[in-house]
């Protein structure tokens, strides 16, 4: 039993964090326009180095590792607020591989197909091999060839032009493009039933890993600021009111990170309690991301409230992570309905 990364995993992490610090620094958002981002320029680079296909078998052009490695890189993606389009690629490649579409899988892994992410609105969703339908938010879908759609029944890739009444809306998280749209009953290009692979569980797990990145980065931003910002002649981090806020952030981060790694290993082994653990992970990590992002704004004071500071980006992205594949309320209701894990 060991929850720490081994040397190979550490090497993956070091390579990726170095790459993202250089190619995707948080300050990149200041140079961009009002809505959107240019992260799709990163997909071929990440694909080339294997980061998009870590959990995909090497016979489909992946690296042949597990959910454990995917979780480690998604935490890094969260640290740098990488476009949520990356979920479309990782999970879309898995659908393509499991669906036996070698060409599509390799196209996704090379970054030459763009996959938007659908997130259901309040209406009921229909999901089956023959027809998917409902009302959706579409993230990062403006240039997308395919849309990723999933729930507890299964996972689908749907060609983007099957979505109708598409309307751009102003996103709270302006780094992402957001549309509202309807999907009339449409046959998916590829469908993986939940009984064949727990893709939805994996999606929840990866969203939670991303959220742990938000929780950890906002924690270190707040702590670093509390060490240098002086008031009353002392760094504000020396005052217990601020110090204890930081300590709470660290407790939440540690809880979320530990549970996320634990549940990644459970998912990798396809254990019976994988939903229990992954949902617990999403609950603790989204809660940590939301609360830490809020505390980070508070500790930065008026500067934290400005558009110029990066603090608000993390808060807004934490809300996106909450909504993806079921928000806290939904996850709590699901968790309550599951049986007690055997172990």
């Amino acid at each position: 039993m060991n929850l720490l990364p081994d040397s190979q995993q550490q090497q993956i992490l070091d390579t990726l964090s170095g790459l993202l610090r250089e190619k995707a620094p948080i300050d990149r958002f200041r140079e961009h326009g009002e809505v959107g981002n240019e992260d799709d320029r990163l997909w071929p680079i990440l694909g080339d180095l294997g980061f998009l296909g870590l959990g995909i078998s090497d016979s489909f052009g992946g690296v042949g590792l597990s959910a454990a490695e995917e979780v480690l890189v998604y935490r890094e993606f969260g640290n740098q607020l990488l476009s949520v389009g990356v979920f479309g690629l990782t999970l879309g490649a898995r659908i393509a591989a499991l669906g036996g579409d070698d060409t599509m899988c390799r196209q996704i892994l090379s970054g030459s197909l763009i996959i938007g992410v659908a997130s259901s609105l309040h209406t009921p969703v229909q999901m089956s091999e023959t027809a998917c339908a409902g009302a959706f938010h579409l993230f990062e879908a403006s240039k997308a060839d395919l849309i990723l759609l999933m729930n507890e029944q299964g996972a689908a890739l749907i060609t983007a032009d099957q979505f109708v009444e598409r309307k751009s809306v102003k996103p709270m998280d302006a780094i992402l493009t957001l549309e509202r749209s309807q999907l009339p009953a449409s046959r998916p290009a590829l469908w993986i039933d939940a009984s064949d692979d727990a893709l939805h569980t994996r999606a929840i797990l990866l969203a939670s890993a991303y959220a742990t990145g938000i929780a950890a980065t906002t924690q270190s931003m707040a702590v670093e600021y509390a060490k240098i910002r002086e008031q009353f002649g002392k760094p504000i981090g020396s005052f217990q009111a601020v110090k204890h806020l930081c300590a709470e952030m660290a407790i939440r981060s540690e809880a979320a990170q530990s549970q996320c790694l634990f549940s990644a290993l459970v998912v990798a082994e396809d254990r019976d309690d994988k939903d229990f653990q992954a949902i617990s992970s999403k609950i603790t990590s989204v809660d940590a991301a939301l609360q830490n992002a809020a505390s980070n704004i508070q500790i930065h004071g008026a500067f934290g409230f400005t558009a110029e500071a990066n603090a608000h980006h993390f808060l807004k992205r934490a809300h996106v992570m909450d909504q993806l594949w079921g928000d806290l309320r939904h996850q709590r209701a699901r968790l309550l309905s599951l049986p007690t894990p055997a172990t």
């Binding site: 039993m1 530990s258 209701a333 309550l336």
Partner: peptide
């Protein structure tokens, strides 16, 4: 029910934290 679900998640995380603490100590 909502509080019970939250505590289920919290207890799962507490166990994972224990495993993390033991991993670090080892």
């Amino acid at each position: 029910g909502s509080r019970l679900a939250q505590l289920r998640a919290d207890m799962a995380a507490a166990r994972a934290m224990t495993y993390m603490t033991v991993s670090r100590a080892k």
